[in-house]
């Protein structure tokens, strides 16, 4: 009959109306500034730079290789290489950036920089409250603002950060083991050289044995 559907609809909305007062589970609204929804792990907004340890300057993983700068589709990254070098996590001497700027008013959050970085240095952040009153200066992020500790990275992307930490730890161990082995080999070689020298009445040492391969 005409009107039965109308009554059914009215009953449904009345149920919603009264239900919304005593059943909080019905309410789908997240009242944003007070309540915040947990963002998914894979979500990404703008890039940031990871550093190890306590000192953002010393522990910065970035080696100023400029791959990200070249790959960035919007060209929002600007890097100036420093002249000095500092040791990285495996102890190798690397360059580091004197300037590392990202213009987040241009950045489109594609994540290509994070994908191409061979040093696990540039990663995607999850901050989204980025509005400022100033259009230019506040949206140009410098190295100091971009550098964030590895613990923060571990907090927002636990899976990825865990894998990277294990790999870097292994690299470090390997490097240490290699250094140790090299040192041993060197010592052994030196000892051999000494022995040989002692045995063969001190001939001049050959260049091959002095500098290990």
């Amino acid at each position: 009959m005409l009107g039965s559907g109308l009554i059914k609809g009215l009953a449904q909305t009345a149920k919603n109306f009264f239900g919304s007062y005593h059943d909080p589970a019905r309410m789908v609204t997240v009242e944003y500034p007070e309540q915040k929804r947990v963002v998914p792990e894979a979500s990404r907004t703008i890039p940031f730079l990871v550093y190890d340890g306590e000192d953002p300057e010393l522990g910065l993983r970035c080696t100023a290789c400029k791959i990200c700068e070249v790959e960035c589709p919007t060209q929002c990254i600007y890097i100036v290489k420093n002249t000095s070098k500092k040791p990285d996590h495996v102890g190798k001497m690397q360059f580091h950036p004197a300037t590392f700027d990202i213009d987040i008013s241009v950045c489109m959050g594609c994540g290509i920089c994070a994908e191409v970085c061979p040093f696990d240095s540039i990663k995607m952040d999850q901050v989204f409250e980025l509005s400022t009153a100033d259009r230019f200066e506040s949206l140009l992020l410098h190295k100091q603002q971009l550098a964030k500790p590895n613990s923060y990275f571990g907090k927002i992307h636990p899976t990825e950060a865990g894998e990277i930490d294990i790999r870097r730890e292994q690299d470090k161990r390997k490097a240490e083991a290699k250094a140790k082995a090299d040192a041993e080999a060197k010592a052994r070689a030196a000892a051999e050289v000494q022995n040989a020298a002692a045995n063969s009445a001190a001939p001049p040492p050959s260049p091959q044995t002095v500098t290990p391969a």
Partner: peptide, 10 residues
């Protein structure tokens, strides 16, 4: 407010 409650909003 009423329309909101009908749609389970605040």
């Amino acid at each position: 407010k009423g329309l909101g409650r009908i749609q389970n909003r605040f």
